[in-house]
Computed example of a mutant assay.
Amino acid sequence: MSILSYRPYDFRELSDDIEELSRLYSFIQTEEIGRSVEGRPIWEIRIGEGTKKLHFNGSFHANEWITSSVLVSFIKEYAQALASGSSIGWVLAKKLWSEASLSVVPMVNPDGVELVINGPSAANEQQVKAINGEVEQFDGWKANIRGVDLNNQFPANWDIEKERKEPKSPAPRDYPGERPLSEPEAIAMAKLQQREQFDLMAAFHTQGAEFYWGYEGNEPEESRLLAEIFERVSGYQAVRFIDSHAGYKDWFIQEFQRPGFTIELGKGCNPLPLTQLEEIYIATRNICIAALLNAGT
Rank of each mutant, 00 (worst) to 15 (best):
Y175Q: 09
V148W: 02
S5Q: 11
L115W: 02
I88P: 00
K53Y: 09
W90N: 11
I66S: 05
G268A: 10
L265S: 01
D199V: 06
N144H: 05
Q80K: 10
D17C: 06
K53V: 14
R232W: 11
G39K: 12
I282T: 11
N218Y: 15
S73L: 07
T51W: 12
L181C: 01
A203P: 09
G133A: 03
D174G: 02
E166W: 09
N144L: 14
A238T: 06
I160E: 04
R173Q: 15
P110E: 09
L4K: 11
A188T: 03
S84E: 11
E64V: 06
E183L: 04
E178F: 15
Q127A: 13
Y9W: 03
E32N: 12
G119Y: 00
V104S: 08
M189P: 05
E264A: 04
L274Y: 07
P259Q: 03
Q207D: 15
E183P: 10
F154S: 04
I117T: 07
L14E: 08
F230V: 02
S182Q: 12
I18V: 15
P170V: 05
Q127W: 15
R285E: 01
N57I: 05
G147F: 04
E163R: 14
P176L: 02
E136A: 07
E134H: 05
W97K: 14
S26H: 12
A62R: 04
P184S: 00
A143G: 07
A291C: 10
V148P: 04
Y236T: 00
K267A: 15
G266E: 02
A295P: 04
A186R: 02
R240Y: 00
L292K: 01
Y9M: 05
A100H: 05
T30F: 11
D149L: 06
I242M: 09
